[in-house]
Design a protein around this nucleic acid. Sequence first.
DNA 1: ATAAAGTCTATAAATATTATAGGGTAATAG
DNA 2: CTATTACCCTATAATATTTATAGACTTTAT
Lengths: 138, 138
Amino acid sequence: MLSKKTKYAFHALTYLGKHRDQKTVLIHDISEEYGISHKFLENILLELRKAGILGSKKGKGGGYYLIKDPKDIALSKVIRLLDGPIALLPCVSLNYYEPCVECKSEALCGLNKVMIQVRDEMLNVLENKSLADILDKE
Amino acid sequence: MLSKKTKYAFHALTYLGKHRDQKTVLIHDISEEYGISHKFLENILLELRKAGILGSKKGKGGGYYLIKDPKDIALSKVIRLLDGPIALLPCVSLNYYEPCVECKSEALCGLNKVMIQVRDEMLNVLENKSLADILDKE
DNA sequence: ATAAAGTCTATAAATATTATAGGGTAATAG
DNA sequence: CTATTACCCTATAATATTTATAGACTTTAT
């Protein structure tokens, strides 16, 4: 399951996507809309900004805004940023690979093979769907 | 990511599948093979037995054995048993459904829609692949 | 100047996962 | 028939992760 962090990140991005007419959106407005703790959301938006997905403006009249076209924000990018690996096993992760300590040989591991398939099916959706697809359906 | 519990369950099932010529297999032999704590594995095997996947025999000469044909043990069943939901969001889980508290309407949630797709792609592999497929590849 | 609003780092609280402990029960061998 | 083996079961401890909060700092508009 996705962490709340990731789920909240998607909600925030959706909100920002819906309010692209405004220059900036307050953390406060997003946290109100979804009942998310202001401070918790603050950290999440900060990560999204550092990752180059959001821009921000300090001071009075400041806030956050989308820095990219929604169609260029792949869902996989958001998940990896906040949650880490998408794959179900570390030995099968493209971005967070780690060998399984108990595993003698990955080449001879049947579990490894099938989990590669699962990963690829997941990525087939998550890499190709973007924030734009979420916005389309709301 | 899958928990260690689930990963160990798959290892244990694989081991049992490879030793179906024997009447029973000791917890000890499996825990040795994969370097898993004996007591931790004990709990896992117990769950698999209660779920009707394994059988056991007490006392001297006892141990565990597969009670089903490997092709009838879907990977999804093992994951749901040890880890719970396969879906990435509770509002999209078939077996562990829960609404998202922050969500006003599932019907109008774009995230919900796309996560249904991810779930279905995952299940497409996990429901149709079985222990037999893992064994085939080792 | 002052108030608004994001920045940043640290830490606390809550929850979940992983691991251990130890007595109980059944089966088997001798 | 009793000693030993091996699974059964519940509770709890240890650890890790996730979620949430705190507070001082910086920038900007008016």
